[in-house]
Computed example of a mutant assay.
Amino acid sequence: MTAAIEVSDLSKSYDGTRAVDGVSFTVAAGETFGVIGPNGAGKTTTVECLTGLRRPDSGTVRVLGLDPARERRALAQRIGVQLQESALPDRLKVAEAMRLFASFYAAPDDWRAVLDRWSLGSIAGRAYADLSGGQKQRLQLALALVGGPEVVVLDELTTGLDPLARRETWTLVGDLKASGTTAVLVSHFMDEAEELCDRVAVIVRGRVAALGSPRDLMARTGTGSLEQAYLALTGSARTGEGSR
């Protein structure tokens, strides 16, 4: 197994509160890896350390062999990130956003081709404020992918979307997997993680409570869905909230 991401004993505190406490996992190249857990579990802090947005207090992180804290500029050319609170200026047009983001990379993909791939070519001249929720989400994905990343991080990808838009987004992530891109999917929707992820790390109170494929976790707990397995593993009923 070729590792795209290696995390060992990662810890991060805020004002004396340990948000991430000794997290370790490895993500194989080409894998879709889920990070799931309840509100405040430390999911977003973990992936922010993967992308260089936060510096760990201790532990080691390597993404494509690079240290995100020390080699962030080099890593930024090889990864894509769709953050939980992503937004663009209301009047910025779709094509303008794509052209701008493509300019950040030394060797980006053709942004027009990326728009077409994600069914956005017909609305290239439309302002961000005029897009539907599903169109905005597809645009955020396209922006994360325009650099031709080897690894993409998707944080709470479908929060706030209606059921149809969620399903459309799932299809797009499936297409991403088929292309061989390594993906880290942060979600509090268990059905989403079960549908899309090869393996998941269940993070509770800053620690990895369980790690394995959805099927493995279901077999371990004798349950019929990842949500039921999650409840059995964590004793938590709080699966429908966002988290840091």
Rank of each mutant, 00 (worst) to 15 (best):
A229S: 09
L100H: 08
Q77W: 01
S13Y: 02
F189Q: 08
R205A: 15
A183M: 07
L185E: 15
P68I: 04
V23Y: 00
L141P: 09
S213L: 04
S86K: 06
D175Y: 08
S132E: 08
D15Y: 07
G174H: 11
V23Q: 00
L120S: 07
E168N: 15
V63I: 11
D216V: 11
Y14Q: 08
T181E: 07
A142I: 00
V151S: 13
V7C: 01
L120Y: 02
A4G: 05
F101C: 00
R167F: 12
R220M: 15
Q84M: 13
L120T: 02
T239S: 13
L143V: 07
T32M: 13
D57A: 04
D21C: 06
L10M: 12
D130K: 14
G80S: 11
A97K: 01
E241S: 13
G59D: 09
A102L: 15
A142C: 00
A41Y: 02
G133K: 03
L139H: 00
A201M: 15
A165T: 06
I203K: 06
V184F: 01
D155S: 14
G42Y: 00
G242I: 10
M98E: 01
A229Y: 12
V204M: 10
I5M: 06
K43I: 07
E168Q: 15
Q77G: 02
T45K: 08
D15A: 14
L231I: 13
D130Y: 09
G37M: 12
Y230M: 10
G37V: 03
F101Q: 08
G37N: 06
R62Y: 00
A229I: 14
E194N: 04
G42E: 02
G147F: 03
L64P: 06
D191P: 03
A165L: 14
A106S: 05
R70P: 11
R238Y: 11
A74E: 07
Q84I: 08
F104Q: 12
D57K: 07
L83P: 14
G224C: 13
H188E: 07
W111I: 02
V200T: 03
K12C: 15
A3E: 09
S122C: 08
T221G: 06
T32C: 12
K93Q: 13
A142K: 00
Q140Y: 14
P108I: 03
G16H: 11
T181W: 00
A74L: 14
V151D: 02
G65H: 06
G222E: 03
T2C: 05
L231P: 10
A87I: 08
R207Q: 05
L131D: 08
L143W: 09
R54V: 02
G147P: 00
A165R: 00
R138C: 01
L100W: 08
A129C: 05
L139G: 00
I79V: 07
D130H: 06
A69G: 12
A193W: 13
L154A: 03
G65K: 09
V81P: 05
E85R: 11
T44N: 12
G52M: 15
G34C: 10
L92R: 15
T169E: 01
G42M: 02
